[in-house]
Design a protein around this nucleic acid. Sequence first.
DNA 1: AAGCCGTGGTT
DNA 2: TAACCAAGGCT
Length: 383
Amino acid sequence: MKTAILQSDSQPEQSLTAPDLNPEALSRSLLDWYQISGRDLPWRKTRDPYKIWISEIMLQQTQVKTVIPYFDRWLNLFPTLETLANSQLQSVLKAWEGLGYYARARNIHKAAIVIMERFSGQFPDTLEHAMLLPGIGRTTAGGILSSAFNLPLPILDGNVKRVLSRLINLPVPPDRSLAALWEISESLVPLNQGRDFNQAFMDLGATVCIPKMPNCVVCPWNCFCKSYNLGVQNQRPMTEPKAPVPHKTIGVAVIWNSNQDNSILIDRRKPEGLLGGMWEFPGGKVELGETIPECIKREIQEELGIEIAVDEFLMTIDHAYSHFKVTLHVYHCHHLSGIPQTIECDEIKWVTLSELNEYPFPTANLKIIQALQQSGSRFPVSP
DNA sequence: AAGCCGTGGTT
DNA sequence: TAACCAAGGCT
């Protein structure tokens, strides 16, 4: 606390976003609430930094309900950091299939190898070292190290940003005030209860201080919360206006090989970028004035260097990615001539209907596989 | 530093 | 129903 003498002839040193908080009162009331109302989650039964790390990565931009079955399956497939480091990236991506943001899986695999090689197989126990690992930023590092080692490191995830925005009635979107929010989060973590405090902080945001219609009546911080006491909690946090997302029309080919035994052509996408490393049915964007069968024939010629015939329509799939939407128009096709070349992909394979299940596909493509396997499709396709 | 990067739950 | 948005990080 600054003394009156030091501040006597100037304005009180209070930044716009760091108001008069009482960290001790806040942390104590939150920890008391957590003891009664905290969630019982699988990754809270352990202090193994490996398991906690996996949970933290899976939980990035992903809801708890979605993560739990993936987390359980993962630990059966890769029970230790060493088994993960010794696994193939394709197996890792298959375990991640459907979770999205596949760079997370690629980074986990890379990081596991780095930990084996640079950290003797021990997950790092300092912020500096943890943040050297791919896919681990300050929030994830703080989450892992506080949970595994009870270190008093702050976090600033979506929950904490929302809770703090309301607590101090932040008049700008939280991403405009990150430095101040980090400072507050850091000021609140008790030195000897980093684990419980951070978990409690996120629970508060996930179960009480939720995005719409927060349940302020049961909030342990309602007496401290500026937004609540001004009745403006539904107007916080402020949000940036967002740009409308573009829409693309895509032609997709299920290419049957008439020479081989009912096999279908799939390709593996390049390791970086959208859906990097995942397998797919080939295709591409429909150009102006082009029919969908024309598009499919052209794209397959350009991307795989082969000639195909476009046969009967299979299905359409509407799908939303993070920054655009697509409509996939899927057609049965058959191979006419040429040997497939990896022009715009990393690998090409002819596989049977049942072998499709061994490869990691993005969700939109899984719907195509499901349709093919349900109908028991065979070439040549007949009604 | 603003855009890229998935999917499903919720309202 | 369409929009919002979730235990963010990387470039």
